[in-house]
């Protein structure tokens, strides 16, 4: 009964919301990040490094700064906010959709960088051989590049998922603290501590710690296993 009480003390609604946010973010990032990583890897444009720097910004920028700019960008008086209001009648700040947008930007490098590194490790002649056999660029991406870069793609997806699960600063700036809408796990822990409810905070923190550790253990073991079924590529 005691453990049941403790478990009930955890903010399951916040955990559920965080999982939903992380899954959505990861799916959107896979759709956006793979083409972006492809472009970053294979484009010969001189100004490519500028885009690389922009993609990497969330790695070094304080989440509050990123959150602040996102908040300005999606506010009702901004073009993006106005367009969204016209299309849906709703508002982006302090909504799940606004939070999702911020999360996607915030986790972008966590998808793009491992995927781009995996793309760069694939022998470009394999792609060229496929093109010369009459296979389109899109089909070559799907049939040659993506399977060979699978470990990198898996790493990118898992890291983005885990990173979004633990997000705090950006959520606070863009999403606020609305139960069931924008109150994620980390916000919930902060609330519990503010309310001096240390037991609940401890259990929620332990959950997040255990989750993060499990995800990382899974990622690294998966990587090793995928590498080992891809023969002859161990050194890359």
């Amino acid at each position: 009964m005691d453990s049941f009480y403790r478990a009930n003390n955890m903010d399951w609604q916040a955990i559920g919301l965080s999982v939903r946010l992380s899954i959505s973010t990861t799916l959107i990032l896979l759709a956006l990040g793979l083409p972006l990583a492809y472009w970053l890897t294979f484009s010969k444009r001189r100004w490519k490094f500028l885009i690389e720097a922009v993609v990497a910004l969330p790695l070094v920028l304080p989440p509050t700064v990123l959150g602040f700019y996102v908040l300005l960008a999606i506010g009702p008086r901004s073009p993006i906010g106005a367009l969204y209001a016209r299309l849906t009648g709703g508002m982006l700040p302090f909504s799940f959709q606004g939070l999702l947008l911020a999360s996607v930007l915030y986790s972008l490098p966590f998808t793009v960088q491992p995927v781009a590194a995996a793309f760069a490790a694939v022998d470009p002649r394999l792609l060229e051989a496929s093109w010369c056999l009459g296979v389109s660029r899109a089909a070559t991406f799907r049939r040659v590049l993506a399977p060979l870069a699978l470990p990198g793609i898996a790493t990118g997806a898992i890291l983005s998922f885990a990173h979004t699960m633990g997000e705090f600063g950006v959520v606070l700036m863009v999403g606020g603290n609305i139960a069931g809408v924008t109150r994620t796990v980390s916000i919930s822990i902060y609330d519990q501590v503010q309310a001096l409810n240390y037991t609940a905070a401890a259990w929620t923190s332990l959950f997040l710690l255990g989750f993060s550790f499990t995800v990382l253990v899974f990622t690294y073991s998966l990587q090793r296993r995928i590498w080992s079924i891809w023969p002859g590529r161990h050194g890359l």
């Binding site: 002649r125 060229e128 051989a129 496929s130 010369c132 040659v144 060979l148």
Partner: peptide, 13 residues
């Protein structure tokens, strides 16, 4: 124009 590379570029997977 099918291109045969020096080291054949067979798809390893």
């Amino acid at each position: 124009a099918a291109f045969l590379f020096q080291d054949y570029a067979l798809f390893p997977h």
